[in-house]
Simulated assay, not measured.
Amino acid sequence: MPAMYDHSLQFSLDESESPGEEALSRAAPTAAPEKAAQERVLLDAYSNAVTAIVDEVGPSVVRLDLRRDDGKLAGAGSGFMVSPDGLVVTNAHVVGAARTAEVSTLDGRKFSARILGRDADTDLALARIEEDATFPTAKLGDSKALRRGQLVVAIGNPLGFDASVTAGIVSALGRSLSSNNGRMIEDVIQTDAALNPGNSGGPLVSSLGEVIGVNTAVIRGAQGICFAIASSTAQFVIGEIIRHGRVRRAYIGVGAATHVLPRRLALHHELTQASGALLTHVENGGPSDRSGLMTGDVIVAIDGATILGAGDLVRHLDAEKINRVCSVDFLRRSEKRRVWIAPTERRG
């Protein structure tokens, strides 16, 4: 039987010669160390990337202990600083109905904070530290630029273990997740970075060291199915809470999901976008129903602003559009149409 050998090995032999056992025994050992060295390089690169992310963002991550009016502990979770004067982003379900919190930093300091506002629709909340101090901050990145398979790192305080780090990938984008008040949170990131109780409110960080999500939930009983609120949603909510103490939203009475547009249809209507917001529900008697919108229509623009999906639709229905007539461009089957809608302010 002819000798088997690795064709990637190089031999200095005449064409008439075939490698004998002695030649193979001399060459084979060089392959294993070389492969091991390559694997070490890859592992070191991965480890260095995670370590760099943690070094950059870790100091901004805090633990929140929530207090009731009687001073008793009402819960705990994670958060992270987004401004040097002590603005802390966390989850609405972490703060609950509490009005104050004790904030513990990575270096062991403790501060008092008041809850500025919460938004149950997106499960996000904002707190401010009351003491005069300067804090390390995390930068909010562009969640729209994410791709499936991208490396992400979650930092938080799961099960009371402070400053815990897990790593994984972006498993899916544009998910919908039911919030505690029953409404759907749109444009949610799915990841397999391990999350546990106490991770809620902590940052999900990209390989660029930017926060691209706020960790919010896991599917109990499932392995590695975890979710984070997209940073683009968080930026909108933070701005609204700072300005109004709550999130004011225009209401048109629809449910929506991100929908990929057929390329031929997009080209036919000279659309530069690849997706829109598919209407999965139109409330009977609501603003959209009165305007003529129907389930199955795909909204592609509001007041001339491109709508790429459900997340964009939510963000563009902001306070400025309340009680103001807006144009809505949409696709119905292969036809492009426009209607006019007067959004109202959403209550409850």
Rank of each mutant, 00 (worst) to 15 (best):
D14E: 12
E39I: 13
S334N: 14
I53D: 12
G79A: 09
R99I: 00
A256Q: 10
G255D: 10
R248Y: 14
P287C: 05
I299A: 06
N157K: 01
Q273R: 04
P136K: 08
V88M: 05
G311E: 06
D329H: 01
R248F: 13
D318I: 01
L43Y: 13
E210T: 11
P84Q: 14
V328W: 03
C326S: 09
V165I: 15
V165Y: 15
K139M: 02
I53Q: 11
V298C: 10
L208D: 07
E240Y: 12
K336Q: 14
D119N: 10
R347L: 14
V95Q: 00
V103M: 03
A92C: 10
L64I: 10
S275T: 08
R290F: 01
M294F: 14
D70K: 00
A76V: 05
T280F: 00
L204H: 06
D70Y: 06
V328L: 10
D119C: 10
V298H: 03
A274M: 08
R118L: 12
D65F: 01
I185Y: 11
V153R: 04
L13N: 12
V57Q: 04
D85T: 14
V218T: 12
R118I: 07
K72Y: 03
K144R: 08
P136M: 14
D65R: 02
P158V: 07
I185W: 13
A98P: 07
E15Y: 13
L278Y: 00
D6N: 14
A305P: 00
V298Y: 02
S176H: 13
S47I: 11
S78Y: 02
Y251E: 01
G285I: 09
H259N: 15
R99T: 02
V300H: 11
I212A: 03
G174A: 11
F330N: 01
F11S: 15
A217F: 01
E21N: 07
H269R: 11
E130T: 15
L43R: 11
L204C: 07
L195G: 00
L177D: 08
Q223C: 08
V325S: 09
T295E: 07
Q38T: 06
T233K: 07
G58R: 14
V254G: 02
A172W: 09
I129E: 04
A342N: 12
R118D: 11
G253H: 02
G224D: 03
A266N: 09
G309D: 04
G296A: 06
V152H: 07
R338W: 09
S291K: 15
P158I: 05
M1Q: 10
G160K: 14
T295S: 10
R249F: 14
G213F: 14
A342P: 01
L331S: 08
I341D: 04
V211C: 05
E240A: 14
R99W: 01
V282D: 04
A74R: 04
D303T: 10
G304Y: 02
I238S: 06
R332L: 15
G255V: 02
L126H: 05
S200F: 00
L42V: 12
T295G: 10
L293V: 09
V214T: 03
D44S: 15
T280I: 09
I242V: 12
R338G: 06
L24G: 03
T258Q: 06
P59S: 13
A3R: 15
P287K: 11
A222W: 08
I115H: 01
